[in-house]
Nucleic acid binder design. Structure first.
Length: 544
RNA sequence: GCGCCCAUAGCUCAAUUGGAUAGAGCAAUAGCCUUCUAAGCUAUAGGUUGGUGGUUCGAGUCCACCUGGGCGUACCA
Protein backbone atom coordinates (compact mmCIF):
# COMPACT_ATOMS: atom_id res chain seq x y z
CA UNK A 1 0.00 0.00 0.00
CA UNK A 2 2.70 2.43 1.01
CA UNK A 3 4.76 1.57 -2.03
CA UNK A 4 1.96 2.70 -4.26
CA UNK A 5 1.66 6.01 -2.43
CA UNK A 6 5.40 6.61 -2.65
CA UNK A 7 5.15 5.98 -6.35
CA UNK A 8 2.39 8.49 -7.04
CA UNK A 9 3.88 11.07 -4.68
CA UNK A 10 7.22 10.85 -6.41
CA UNK A 11 5.50 11.34 -9.71
CA UNK A 12 3.66 14.36 -8.36
CA UNK A 13 6.90 15.87 -7.11
CA UNK A 14 7.82 16.53 -10.72
CA UNK A 15 5.09 19.10 -10.71
CA UNK A 16 5.29 20.23 -7.09
CA UNK A 17 8.88 21.13 -6.36
CA UNK A 18 8.39 21.30 -2.60
CA UNK A 19 7.47 17.62 -2.36
CA UNK A 20 10.98 16.65 -3.37
CA UNK A 21 12.63 17.90 -0.25
CA UNK A 22 10.06 16.39 2.03
CA UNK A 23 10.57 13.09 3.76
CA UNK A 24 7.30 11.36 3.04
CA UNK A 25 5.68 9.44 5.85
CA UNK A 26 2.46 7.53 5.55
CA UNK A 27 0.81 6.53 8.77
CA UNK A 28 -1.94 4.15 9.45
CA UNK A 29 -4.50 6.20 11.34
CA UNK A 30 -5.68 4.78 14.62
CA UNK A 31 -9.26 5.41 13.69
CA UNK A 32 -10.71 3.40 10.88
CA UNK A 33 -12.85 6.19 9.46
CA UNK A 34 -9.68 8.22 8.87
CA UNK A 35 -8.67 5.96 6.02
CA UNK A 36 -6.18 3.18 5.47
CA UNK A 37 -3.16 5.43 5.17
CA UNK A 38 -2.70 9.06 5.86
CA UNK A 39 -0.19 11.72 4.86
CA UNK A 40 0.78 14.66 7.03
CA UNK A 41 2.77 16.31 4.24
CA UNK A 42 0.61 19.41 4.15
CA UNK A 43 1.04 20.02 7.87
CA UNK A 44 4.79 19.76 7.61
CA UNK A 45 4.88 22.26 4.76
CA UNK A 46 2.73 24.90 6.40
CA UNK A 47 5.59 26.94 7.74
CA UNK A 48 7.76 26.76 4.68
CA UNK A 49 5.05 27.64 2.16
CA UNK A 50 3.22 30.05 4.43
CA UNK A 51 -0.06 28.63 3.28
CA UNK A 52 -2.94 27.07 5.14
CA UNK A 53 -2.40 23.34 5.52
CA UNK A 54 -5.74 22.42 4.02
CA UNK A 55 -4.95 24.45 0.91
CA UNK A 56 -1.61 22.71 0.52
CA UNK A 57 -3.34 19.38 0.97
CA UNK A 58 -5.72 20.25 -1.80
CA UNK A 59 -2.90 21.21 -4.13
CA UNK A 60 -1.05 17.98 -3.43
CA UNK A 61 -4.15 15.90 -3.85
CA UNK A 62 -4.95 17.52 -7.19
CA UNK A 63 -1.55 16.73 -8.59
CA UNK A 64 -1.63 13.05 -7.61
CA UNK A 65 -2.51 10.71 -10.44
CA UNK A 66 -4.55 8.17 -8.59
CA UNK A 67 -5.68 4.90 -10.12
CA UNK A 68 -9.28 4.57 -8.94
CA UNK A 69 -9.06 0.79 -9.01
CA UNK A 70 -6.41 1.01 -6.31
CA UNK A 71 -7.51 3.99 -4.24
CA UNK A 72 -11.22 4.57 -4.45
CA UNK A 73 -11.58 7.46 -2.06
CA UNK A 74 -9.50 10.32 -0.67
CA UNK A 75 -10.27 13.11 1.74
CA UNK A 76 -8.69 16.06 3.44
CA UNK A 77 -9.44 15.89 7.10
CA UNK A 78 -8.73 17.49 10.42
CA UNK A 79 -6.02 20.14 10.36
CA UNK A 80 -4.79 18.99 6.93
CA UNK A 81 -4.27 15.25 6.77
CA UNK A 82 -4.76 13.58 3.42
CA UNK A 83 -6.48 10.27 3.92
CA UNK A 84 -6.46 7.44 1.41
CA UNK A 85 -8.96 4.62 1.18
CA UNK A 86 -7.86 1.56 -0.75
CA UNK A 87 -10.24 -0.40 -2.90
CA UNK A 88 -11.41 -3.85 -1.84
CA UNK A 89 -10.05 -5.49 -4.97
CA UNK A 90 -6.61 -4.02 -4.37
CA UNK A 91 -6.68 -5.22 -0.77
CA UNK A 92 -7.74 -8.72 -1.76
CA UNK A 93 -4.89 -9.12 -4.24
CA UNK A 94 -2.49 -9.66 -1.35
CA UNK A 95 -3.95 -13.14 -0.92
CA UNK A 96 -2.62 -14.22 -4.28
CA UNK A 97 0.82 -12.93 -3.44
CA UNK A 98 0.85 -14.83 -0.16
CA UNK A 99 -0.46 -18.10 -1.49
CA UNK A 100 1.85 -18.10 -4.50
CA UNK A 101 4.99 -18.05 -2.36
CA UNK A 102 3.98 -19.09 1.15
CA UNK A 103 7.48 -19.76 2.44
CA UNK A 104 8.79 -16.43 1.28
CA UNK A 105 6.03 -14.05 2.19
CA UNK A 106 7.51 -11.48 4.55
CA UNK A 107 10.97 -12.01 3.16
CA UNK A 108 12.84 -9.13 1.64
CA UNK A 109 15.91 -8.90 -0.53
CA UNK A 110 16.93 -5.54 0.83
CA UNK A 111 20.16 -6.86 2.31
CA UNK A 112 20.75 -9.76 -0.04
CA UNK A 113 24.44 -10.60 -0.22
CA UNK A 114 25.29 -8.90 3.09
CA UNK A 115 26.92 -10.71 5.96
CA UNK A 116 25.93 -10.22 9.56
CA UNK A 117 27.32 -11.50 12.81
CA UNK A 118 25.16 -11.71 15.89
CA UNK A 119 27.02 -12.32 19.11
CA UNK A 120 24.88 -13.35 22.03
CA UNK A 121 24.68 -15.39 25.23
CA UNK A 122 28.50 -15.44 25.56
CA UNK A 123 28.32 -16.64 29.15
CA UNK A 124 31.55 -17.97 30.59
CA UNK A 125 31.30 -21.66 31.43
CA UNK A 126 31.01 -21.29 35.20
CA UNK A 127 27.46 -22.49 35.68
CA UNK A 128 24.11 -23.19 34.08
CA UNK A 129 22.36 -20.47 32.11
CA UNK A 130 20.03 -18.37 34.18
CA UNK A 131 16.77 -16.70 33.32
CA UNK A 132 18.73 -13.53 32.61
CA UNK A 133 20.76 -15.31 29.96
CA UNK A 134 17.47 -16.50 28.54
CA UNK A 135 16.42 -13.04 27.57
CA UNK A 136 19.77 -12.41 25.94
CA UNK A 137 19.65 -15.74 24.10
CA UNK A 138 16.14 -15.28 22.75
CA UNK A 139 16.64 -11.67 21.70
CA UNK A 140 19.88 -12.51 19.94
CA UNK A 141 18.53 -15.49 18.10
CA UNK A 142 15.37 -13.68 17.06
CA UNK A 143 17.37 -10.71 15.83
CA UNK A 144 19.41 -13.18 13.77
CA UNK A 145 16.24 -14.75 12.37
CA UNK A 146 14.85 -11.37 11.42
CA UNK A 147 18.05 -10.39 9.64
CA UNK A 148 17.87 -13.62 7.67
CA UNK A 149 14.37 -12.66 6.56
CA UNK A 150 15.82 -9.44 5.20
CA UNK A 151 18.35 -11.29 3.10
CA UNK A 152 21.39 -11.24 5.37
CA UNK A 153 23.54 -14.28 5.71
CA UNK A 154 23.92 -14.49 9.47
CA UNK A 155 26.51 -16.13 11.72
CA UNK A 156 25.45 -16.69 15.30
CA UNK A 157 28.45 -16.37 17.57
CA UNK A 158 29.30 -17.14 21.17
CA UNK A 159 32.27 -15.44 22.76
CA UNK A 160 33.62 -17.02 25.88
CA UNK A 161 36.50 -16.94 28.23
CA UNK A 162 37.76 -20.06 29.94
CA UNK A 163 40.75 -18.46 31.59
CA UNK A 164 41.07 -16.09 34.49
CA UNK A 165 40.03 -15.86 38.07
CA UNK A 166 36.44 -17.08 37.79
CA UNK A 167 37.60 -20.27 36.11
CA UNK A 168 40.28 -20.81 38.73
CA UNK A 169 37.67 -20.63 41.43
CA UNK A 170 35.55 -23.04 39.43
CA UNK A 171 38.35 -25.61 39.31
CA UNK A 172 39.03 -25.14 43.01
CA UNK A 173 35.36 -25.55 43.80
CA UNK A 174 35.20 -28.88 41.98
CA UNK A 175 38.32 -30.17 43.62
CA UNK A 176 37.05 -29.28 47.06
CA UNK A 177 33.82 -31.18 46.46
CA UNK A 178 35.85 -34.10 45.15
CA UNK A 179 37.83 -34.15 48.37
CA UNK A 180 34.63 -33.91 50.32
CA UNK A 181 33.32 -37.04 48.60
CA UNK A 182 36.52 -38.80 49.56
CA UNK A 183 35.68 -38.12 53.15
CA UNK A 184 38.09 -35.29 53.76
CA UNK A 185 36.90 -32.55 55.99
CA UNK A 186 36.82 -29.39 53.89
CA UNK A 187 36.16 -25.77 54.44
CA UNK A 188 34.11 -24.58 51.45
CA UNK A 189 34.60 -20.81 51.08
CA UNK A 190 31.40 -18.78 50.75
CA UNK A 191 32.59 -17.06 47.58
CA UNK A 192 33.12 -20.36 45.76
CA UNK A 193 30.51 -21.84 43.45
CA UNK A 194 27.82 -23.23 45.69
CA UNK A 195 25.61 -24.92 43.10
CA UNK A 196 24.83 -28.63 43.15
CA UNK A 197 26.14 -28.98 39.63
CA UNK A 198 29.66 -28.64 41.09
CA UNK A 199 29.03 -31.68 43.27
CA UNK A 200 27.74 -33.62 40.29
CA UNK A 201 30.85 -32.88 38.28
CA UNK A 202 33.03 -33.93 41.21
CA UNK A 203 31.01 -37.09 41.67
CA UNK A 204 31.38 -38.00 38.03
CA UNK A 205 35.13 -37.57 38.23
CA UNK A 206 35.17 -39.78 41.28
CA UNK A 207 33.18 -42.48 39.51
CA UNK A 208 35.36 -42.39 36.43
CA UNK A 209 38.77 -41.94 37.97
CA UNK A 210 38.48 -43.03 41.57
CA UNK A 211 40.65 -41.29 44.11
CA UNK A 212 43.77 -40.99 41.96
CA UNK A 213 43.12 -37.32 41.18
CA UNK A 214 43.68 -36.28 44.76
CA UNK A 215 47.01 -34.68 44.00
CA UNK A 216 46.01 -33.15 40.68
CA UNK A 217 46.12 -29.42 40.18
CA UNK A 218 42.62 -27.95 40.50
CA UNK A 219 43.34 -25.91 37.41
CA UNK A 220 44.07 -29.01 35.40
CA UNK A 221 41.62 -31.84 35.05
CA UNK A 222 39.14 -30.37 37.52
CA UNK A 223 38.76 -27.13 35.66
CA UNK A 224 38.73 -28.86 32.29
CA UNK A 225 36.07 -31.36 33.36
CA UNK A 226 33.92 -28.59 34.79
CA UNK A 227 34.21 -26.52 31.64
CA UNK A 228 33.29 -29.44 29.44
CA UNK A 229 30.29 -30.49 31.50
CA UNK A 230 28.98 -26.98 31.91
CA UNK A 231 29.31 -26.19 28.23
CA UNK A 232 27.48 -29.36 27.35
CA UNK A 233 24.72 -28.18 29.64
CA UNK A 234 24.62 -24.71 28.17
CA UNK A 235 24.41 -26.03 24.65
CA UNK A 236 21.64 -28.44 25.48
CA UNK A 237 19.65 -25.68 27.16
CA UNK A 238 20.06 -23.51 24.08
CA UNK A 239 19.01 -26.36 21.82
CA UNK A 240 15.78 -26.61 23.77
CA UNK A 241 15.16 -23.01 22.71
CA UNK A 242 16.09 -23.89 19.12
CA UNK A 243 19.29 -21.90 19.38
CA UNK A 244 22.47 -23.11 17.77
CA UNK A 245 25.61 -21.03 17.48
CA UNK A 246 27.78 -21.46 14.46
CA UNK A 247 30.96 -20.01 15.95
CA UNK A 248 32.29 -20.46 19.45
CA UNK A 249 35.02 -17.87 19.79
CA UNK A 250 37.47 -18.42 22.62
CA UNK A 251 38.96 -15.26 24.05
CA UNK A 252 42.12 -17.22 24.74
CA UNK A 253 42.80 -17.60 21.04
CA UNK A 254 43.37 -13.85 20.89
CA UNK A 255 46.35 -14.32 23.18
CA UNK A 256 47.57 -17.47 21.50
CA UNK A 257 47.49 -16.00 18.03
CA UNK A 258 49.08 -12.75 19.12
CA UNK A 259 46.11 -10.48 18.31
CA UNK A 260 46.35 -8.82 21.69
CA UNK A 261 50.02 -8.11 21.44
CA UNK A 262 49.61 -6.80 17.91
CA UNK A 263 46.84 -4.43 18.93
CA UNK A 264 48.84 -3.18 21.89
CA UNK A 265 51.69 -2.39 19.56
CA UNK A 266 49.44 -0.48 17.17
CA UNK A 267 48.09 1.66 19.99
CA UNK A 268 51.62 2.37 21.11
CA UNK A 269 52.85 3.22 17.61
CA UNK A 270 49.97 5.55 16.98
CA UNK A 271 50.62 7.28 20.27
CA UNK A 272 47.19 6.35 21.56
CA UNK A 273 48.49 4.69 24.70
CA UNK A 274 50.98 5.51 27.42
CA UNK A 275 52.57 3.97 30.49
CA UNK A 276 51.81 5.17 33.96
CA UNK A 277 52.27 3.44 37.32
CA UNK A 278 53.51 0.30 35.52
CA UNK A 279 50.20 0.02 33.67
CA UNK A 280 49.30 0.80 30.08
CA UNK A 281 46.58 3.38 29.61
CA UNK A 282 44.49 4.10 26.55
CA UNK A 283 43.96 7.78 25.73
CA UNK A 284 40.19 7.50 25.74
CA UNK A 285 39.83 11.10 26.82
CA UNK A 286 41.17 12.05 23.38
CA UNK A 287 38.61 9.77 21.77
CA UNK A 288 35.58 11.49 23.15
CA UNK A 289 35.29 9.45 26.33
CA UNK A 290 35.35 10.81 29.83
CA UNK A 291 38.67 9.51 31.02
CA UNK A 292 41.63 7.36 30.11
CA UNK A 293 41.36 3.73 31.10
CA UNK A 294 43.85 0.98 31.84
CA UNK A 295 44.21 -1.62 29.13
CA UNK A 296 47.08 -3.53 30.68
CA UNK A 297 47.30 -3.80 34.44
CA UNK A 298 50.55 -3.34 36.28
CA UNK A 299 50.53 -7.12 36.74
CA UNK A 300 50.90 -7.42 32.97
CA UNK A 301 47.38 -8.77 32.52
CA UNK A 302 45.10 -6.94 30.04
CA UNK A 303 41.73 -5.64 31.21
CA UNK A 304 38.64 -6.72 29.30
CA UNK A 305 38.82 -3.70 26.96
CA UNK A 306 41.86 -4.88 25.09
CA UNK A 307 40.68 -8.38 24.18
CA UNK A 308 37.23 -6.98 23.43
CA UNK A 309 38.70 -4.60 20.89
CA UNK A 310 40.95 -7.29 19.44
CA UNK A 311 37.91 -9.54 19.20
CA UNK A 312 35.88 -6.98 17.27
CA UNK A 313 38.79 -6.42 14.94
CA UNK A 314 38.60 -10.10 14.00
CA UNK A 315 34.97 -9.54 13.13
CA UNK A 316 35.92 -6.69 10.82
CA UNK A 317 38.60 -8.90 9.31
CA UNK A 318 36.04 -11.61 8.74
CA UNK A 319 34.19 -9.20 6.50
CA UNK A 320 30.88 -8.61 8.23
CA UNK A 321 28.66 -5.77 7.05
CA UNK A 322 26.78 -5.72 10.31
CA UNK A 323 27.83 -6.83 13.77
CA UNK A 324 25.36 -7.08 16.59
CA UNK A 325 26.35 -7.45 20.22
CA UNK A 326 23.60 -8.41 22.59
CA UNK A 327 24.33 -7.31 26.14
CA UNK A 328 22.61 -7.01 29.45
CA UNK A 329 22.37 -3.53 30.90
CA UNK A 330 25.32 -4.22 33.18
CA UNK A 331 27.53 -3.81 30.12
CA UNK A 332 26.26 -0.43 29.17
CA UNK A 333 29.28 1.38 30.61
CA UNK A 334 31.86 -0.76 28.88
CA UNK A 335 31.08 -0.88 25.20
CA UNK A 336 31.51 2.87 24.49
CA UNK A 337 35.19 2.52 25.42
CA UNK A 338 35.57 -0.40 23.07
CA UNK A 339 33.86 1.41 20.22
CA UNK A 340 35.91 4.55 20.81
CA UNK A 341 39.12 2.54 20.68
CA UNK A 342 38.10 0.91 17.41
CA UNK A 343 37.06 4.21 15.93
CA UNK A 344 40.45 5.70 16.75
CA UNK A 345 41.92 2.94 14.60
CA UNK A 346 39.56 3.95 11.75
CA UNK A 347 37.29 0.95 11.88
CA UNK A 348 33.76 1.61 10.71
CA UNK A 349 32.09 1.33 14.06
CA UNK A 350 28.72 2.22 12.53
CA UNK A 351 28.65 -1.40 11.46
CA UNK A 352 28.51 -2.44 15.10
CA UNK A 353 25.12 -2.27 16.74
CA UNK A 354 24.89 -2.82 20.44
CA UNK A 355 21.59 -4.18 21.60
CA UNK A 356 21.23 -3.57 25.30
CA UNK A 357 18.44 -5.27 27.13
CA UNK A 358 17.35 -4.45 30.64
CA UNK A 359 17.38 -7.02 33.39
CA UNK A 360 14.80 -9.59 34.17
CA UNK A 361 13.36 -9.41 37.63
CA UNK A 362 12.00 -12.66 38.92
CA UNK A 363 9.14 -12.52 41.32
CA UNK A 364 7.60 -15.42 43.09
CA UNK A 365 4.49 -15.02 45.22
CA UNK A 366 4.97 -11.29 45.00
CA UNK A 367 8.54 -11.36 46.26
CA UNK A 368 11.64 -10.50 44.28
CA UNK A 369 14.11 -13.35 43.93
CA UNK A 370 17.67 -12.06 43.97
CA UNK A 371 20.00 -13.97 41.77
CA UNK A 372 23.68 -14.79 41.78
CA UNK A 373 25.46 -17.59 39.95
CA UNK A 374 28.02 -17.85 42.69
CA UNK A 375 25.48 -18.27 45.44
CA UNK A 376 23.35 -20.59 43.38
CA UNK A 377 20.09 -19.00 44.43
CA UNK A 378 19.11 -18.44 40.82
CA UNK A 379 16.42 -19.93 38.67
CA UNK A 380 17.99 -21.73 35.76
CA UNK A 381 16.78 -21.32 32.24
CA UNK A 382 16.25 -25.07 32.15
CA UNK A 383 13.88 -24.93 35.10
CA UNK A 384 11.97 -22.18 33.40
CA UNK A 385 11.65 -24.19 30.20
CA UNK A 386 10.54 -27.23 32.22
CA UNK A 387 7.80 -25.23 33.83
CA UNK A 388 6.60 -23.02 31.00
CA UNK A 389 7.70 -24.80 27.83
CA UNK A 390 10.10 -23.46 25.24
CA UNK A 391 7.45 -21.75 23.10
CA UNK A 392 6.20 -19.73 26.05
CA UNK A 393 9.74 -18.84 27.13
CA UNK A 394 10.70 -17.68 23.66
CA UNK A 395 7.53 -15.75 23.18
CA UNK A 396 7.69 -14.18 26.60
CA UNK A 397 11.21 -12.84 26.11
CA UNK A 398 10.36 -11.61 22.65
CA UNK A 399 7.14 -9.84 23.51
CA UNK A 400 8.63 -7.02 25.57
CA UNK A 401 10.79 -4.29 24.17
CA UNK A 402 14.39 -4.89 25.16
CA UNK A 403 14.68 -1.44 26.71
CA UNK A 404 12.05 -2.10 29.31
CA UNK A 405 12.64 -3.84 32.57
CA UNK A 406 10.96 -7.13 32.58
CA UNK A 407 9.11 -8.79 35.33
CA UNK A 408 8.86 -12.54 35.16
CA UNK A 409 6.24 -13.85 37.49
CA UNK A 410 7.28 -17.40 38.26
CA UNK A 411 4.06 -18.34 39.98
CA UNK A 412 2.26 -17.30 36.81
CA UNK A 413 4.59 -19.25 34.56
CA UNK A 414 4.07 -22.34 36.66
CA UNK A 415 0.32 -22.12 36.28
CA UNK A 416 -1.23 -23.82 33.30
CA UNK A 417 -1.43 -20.56 31.51
CA UNK A 418 -4.27 -20.05 29.09
CA UNK A 419 -3.52 -16.47 30.04
CA UNK A 420 -0.50 -16.55 27.81
CA UNK A 421 -0.82 -14.82 24.44
CA UNK A 422 1.29 -17.45 22.73
CA UNK A 423 -1.61 -19.89 22.95
CA UNK A 424 -3.88 -17.31 21.42
CA UNK A 425 -1.71 -17.19 18.31
CA UNK A 426 -1.16 -20.91 18.12
CA UNK A 427 -4.85 -21.50 18.56
CA UNK A 428 -5.67 -19.32 15.58
CA UNK A 429 -3.21 -21.33 13.52
CA UNK A 430 -4.61 -24.65 14.71
CA UNK A 431 -8.16 -23.54 13.96
CA UNK A 432 -7.23 -22.75 10.37
CA UNK A 433 -5.48 -26.08 10.00
CA UNK A 434 -8.62 -27.72 11.25
CA UNK A 435 -10.72 -25.99 8.61
CA UNK A 436 -8.31 -27.15 5.94
CA UNK A 437 -8.47 -30.72 7.21
CA UNK A 438 -12.27 -30.60 7.08
CA UNK A 439 -12.07 -29.24 3.56
CA UNK A 440 -10.00 -32.18 2.44
CA UNK A 441 -12.50 -34.64 3.89
CA UNK A 442 -15.45 -33.09 2.06
CA UNK A 443 -17.03 -35.17 -0.66
CA UNK A 444 -17.58 -32.23 -2.91
CA UNK A 445 -14.23 -31.07 -4.25
CA UNK A 446 -13.40 -27.65 -2.90
CA UNK A 447 -10.14 -25.76 -2.52
CA UNK A 448 -8.79 -22.28 -1.92
CA UNK A 449 -9.27 -20.09 -4.95
CA UNK A 450 -8.41 -16.53 -5.80
CA UNK A 451 -10.97 -16.40 -8.60
CA UNK A 452 -13.67 -14.56 -6.65
CA UNK A 453 -11.86 -12.55 -4.02
CA UNK A 454 -14.27 -9.67 -4.56
CA UNK A 455 -16.74 -11.66 -2.47
CA UNK A 456 -14.64 -10.89 0.61
CA UNK A 457 -16.46 -7.68 1.42
CA UNK A 458 -17.50 -8.20 5.02
CA UNK A 459 -15.85 -5.78 7.44
CA UNK A 460 -14.04 -8.61 9.27
CA UNK A 461 -12.60 -9.76 5.94
CA UNK A 462 -11.52 -6.28 4.92
CA UNK A 463 -9.76 -5.75 8.22
CA UNK A 464 -7.91 -9.03 7.85
CA UNK A 465 -6.79 -8.07 4.36
CA UNK A 466 -5.45 -4.74 5.52
CA UNK A 467 -3.57 -6.42 8.34
CA UNK A 468 -2.01 -8.88 5.89
CA UNK A 469 -0.77 -5.94 3.84
CA UNK A 470 1.20 -4.66 6.83
CA UNK A 471 3.22 -7.78 7.48
CA UNK A 472 6.22 -7.11 5.26
CA UNK A 473 6.69 -3.62 6.58
CA UNK A 474 6.41 -4.81 10.15
CA UNK A 475 9.12 -7.41 9.57
CA UNK A 476 11.39 -4.83 8.03
CA UNK A 477 10.85 -2.40 10.88
CA UNK A 478 11.29 -5.04 13.59
CA UNK A 479 14.52 -6.23 12.04
CA UNK A 480 16.04 -2.85 11.37
CA UNK A 481 15.20 -1.54 14.82
CA UNK A 482 15.91 -4.89 16.51
CA UNK A 483 12.51 -4.83 18.10
CA UNK A 484 11.05 -8.32 17.87
CA UNK A 485 8.20 -7.33 20.17
CA UNK A 486 6.64 -5.59 17.18
CA UNK A 487 6.17 -8.96 15.52
CA UNK A 488 4.41 -10.23 18.64
CA UNK A 489 2.08 -7.25 18.70
CA UNK A 490 1.36 -7.63 15.00
CA UNK A 491 0.60 -11.33 15.28
CA UNK A 492 -1.69 -10.78 18.23
CA UNK A 493 -3.67 -8.26 16.21
CA UNK A 494 -3.83 -10.59 13.24
CA UNK A 495 -4.95 -13.50 15.40
CA UNK A 496 -7.56 -11.33 17.05
CA UNK A 497 -8.97 -10.30 13.67
CA UNK A 498 -9.03 -13.92 12.59
CA UNK A 499 -10.85 -15.07 15.73
CA UNK A 500 -13.46 -12.38 15.16
CA UNK A 501 -13.86 -13.37 11.54
CA UNK A 502 -14.20 -16.99 12.59
CA UNK A 503 -16.92 -16.16 15.08
CA UNK A 504 -19.09 -14.30 12.59
CA UNK A 505 -18.49 -16.13 9.33
CA UNK A 506 -18.35 -19.71 8.18
CA UNK A 507 -15.77 -20.94 5.73
CA UNK A 508 -17.18 -24.36 4.86
CA UNK A 509 -20.74 -25.44 4.11
CA UNK A 510 -21.66 -22.23 2.33
CA UNK A 511 -22.00 -21.17 -1.29
CA UNK A 512 -19.04 -22.58 -3.22
CA UNK A 513 -17.34 -19.51 -4.67
CA UNK A 514 -17.53 -17.64 -1.37
CA UNK A 515 -16.27 -20.69 0.45
CA UNK A 516 -13.30 -20.91 -1.92
CA UNK A 517 -12.48 -17.24 -1.49
CA UNK A 518 -12.62 -17.57 2.29
CA UNK A 519 -10.44 -20.65 2.14
CA UNK A 520 -7.91 -18.58 0.26
CA UNK A 521 -8.16 -15.87 2.90
CA UNK A 522 -7.65 -18.18 5.88
CA UNK A 523 -4.83 -19.96 4.07
CA UNK A 524 -3.12 -16.61 3.68
CA UNK A 525 -3.64 -15.82 7.37
CA UNK A 526 -2.21 -19.18 8.25
CA UNK A 527 0.91 -18.50 6.18
CA UNK A 528 1.52 -15.19 7.89
CA UNK A 529 0.95 -16.62 11.36
CA UNK A 530 3.32 -19.45 10.63
CA UNK A 531 6.03 -17.23 9.15
CA UNK A 532 5.71 -14.73 11.97
CA UNK A 533 5.92 -17.40 14.64
CA UNK A 534 8.90 -18.96 12.96
CA UNK A 535 10.78 -15.66 13.12
CA UNK A 536 10.16 -15.69 16.84
CA UNK A 537 11.23 -19.33 17.06
CA UNK A 538 7.80 -20.45 18.20
CA UNK A 539 5.99 -23.54 16.89
CA UNK A 540 2.84 -23.24 14.84
CA UNK A 541 0.97 -26.39 15.85
CA UNK A 542 -1.64 -27.91 13.53
CA UNK A 543 -3.70 -29.23 16.42
CA UNK A 544 -4.17 -28.08 19.98
C1' G B 1 28.13 12.79 42.88
C1' C B 2 28.28 11.26 37.53
C1' G B 3 26.55 8.05 33.12
C1' C B 4 22.83 4.78 30.68
C1' C B 5 17.77 2.77 31.07
C1' C B 6 12.79 2.94 33.03
C1' A B 7 7.93 5.21 35.11
C1' U B 8 1.17 4.69 30.79
C1' A B 9 -5.81 1.23 33.40
C1' G B 10 -5.90 -2.79 39.79
C1' C B 11 -1.51 -6.24 37.41
C1' U B 12 1.86 -7.21 32.92
C1' C B 13 2.81 -4.35 28.74
C1' A B 14 1.73 -1.58 23.55
C1' A B 15 1.27 2.94 21.04
C1' U B 16 3.36 2.99 13.37
C1' U B 17 9.49 7.03 16.22
C1' G B 18 5.96 14.20 16.80
C1' G B 19 -0.16 12.96 14.49
C1' A B 20 -6.48 13.05 14.74
C1' U B 21 -10.68 10.18 20.18
C1' A B 22 -3.79 6.68 24.44
C1' G B 23 -4.77 0.64 23.07
C1' A B 24 -4.23 -5.02 24.18
C1' G B 25 -3.91 -9.26 27.52
C1' C B 26 -4.89 -10.74 32.54
C1' A B 27 -8.05 -9.72 36.76
C1' A B 28 -13.80 -7.77 37.54
C1' U B 29 -19.12 -7.79 35.88
C1' A B 30 -23.05 -9.52 32.29
C1' G B 31 -23.97 -12.56 28.05
C1' C B 32 -22.84 -16.34 23.58
C1' C B 33 -21.50 -23.52 22.11
C1' U B 34 -27.47 -28.93 17.88
C1' U B 35 -23.21 -26.59 12.23
C1' C B 36 -15.45 -25.42 10.43
C1' U B 37 -11.57 -26.32 17.82
C1' A B 38 -15.32 -21.83 23.68
C1' A B 39 -7.25 -22.02 24.62
C1' G B 40 -12.72 -18.37 21.23
C1' C B 41 -16.37 -14.14 20.75
C1' U B 42 -19.69 -9.83 22.40
C1' A B 43 -20.78 -5.98 25.93
C1' U B 44 -19.70 -3.00 30.43
C1' A B 45 -16.27 -0.88 33.74
C1' G B 46 -11.33 0.84 34.39
C1' G B 47 -6.63 6.96 32.57
C1' U B 48 -4.98 14.35 34.64
C1' U B 49 0.47 8.87 30.54
C1' G B 50 5.05 9.99 38.19
C1' G B 51 5.17 15.86 38.93
C1' U B 52 6.05 21.08 37.19
C1' G B 53 7.37 24.12 33.27
C1' G B 54 8.96 24.67 27.98
C1' U B 55 9.37 23.85 22.41
C1' U B 56 4.72 23.92 18.08
C1' C B 57 -0.44 23.68 14.06
C1' G B 58 -0.15 19.06 17.44
C1' A B 59 3.60 15.99 23.03
C1' G B 60 2.83 9.52 26.27
C1' U B 61 6.81 10.52 22.58
C1' C B 62 11.43 16.11 22.11
C1' C B 63 14.01 19.80 26.01
C1' A B 64 14.86 21.50 31.34
C1' C B 65 14.17 20.69 36.39
C1' C B 66 12.04 17.56 40.26
C1' U B 67 10.31 12.60 42.48
C1' G B 68 10.81 7.35 42.60
C1' G B 69 13.17 2.59 40.73
C1' G B 70 17.02 -0.61 37.85
C1' C B 71 22.12 -1.11 36.06
C1' G B 72 26.82 0.79 35.97
C1' U B 73 30.53 4.15 37.68
C1' A B 74 37.80 -0.69 39.05
C1' C B 75 44.71 -1.86 37.46
C1' C B 76 36.71 -7.43 37.86
C1' A B 77 34.40 -9.43 33.12
Amino acid sequence: MKEYLYKIFNKASEKLEYLKELELIFDKPKIETHGDLSSNAALLLTKKLKMKPREIAEEILNSLEIDPSIINRTEIAGPGFINFFFSPQYLAAIIKEIIDKPNDFGRSEKYMGKKANVEFVSANPTGPLTVGHGRNAVLGDTAANLLEWLGYSVDREYYFNNAGRQMRILGDSVKLRYKEFLGEGIDFPPDYYQGDYIKEIAKKLLEEQGNKLINEDPEGIFKAAAEKEIFKDIESTLIRLKIKHKVFFNENSLYEKGNIEKLLKIFEEKGLSYKKDDAVWLKLSQMGQEQDKVIVKSSGEPTYRLPDMAYHITKFERGYDLMIDVFGSDHNATYPDVLAGLKALSYEVEKIKVLIHQFVTITENGEIVKMSTRKANYITLDQLIDEAGSDVVRYFFNMRSAASHMNFDLSLAKKQSDENPVFYLQYAHARICSIIRMMEEKEEHIEPSTANLNLLNASEEQLLLKKLHQFKEEVLLSAELFEPHRICAYLEELASLFHKFYTFHRVLGIEKSLSEARLALVTAVRVVLKNGLSMLGVEAPERM
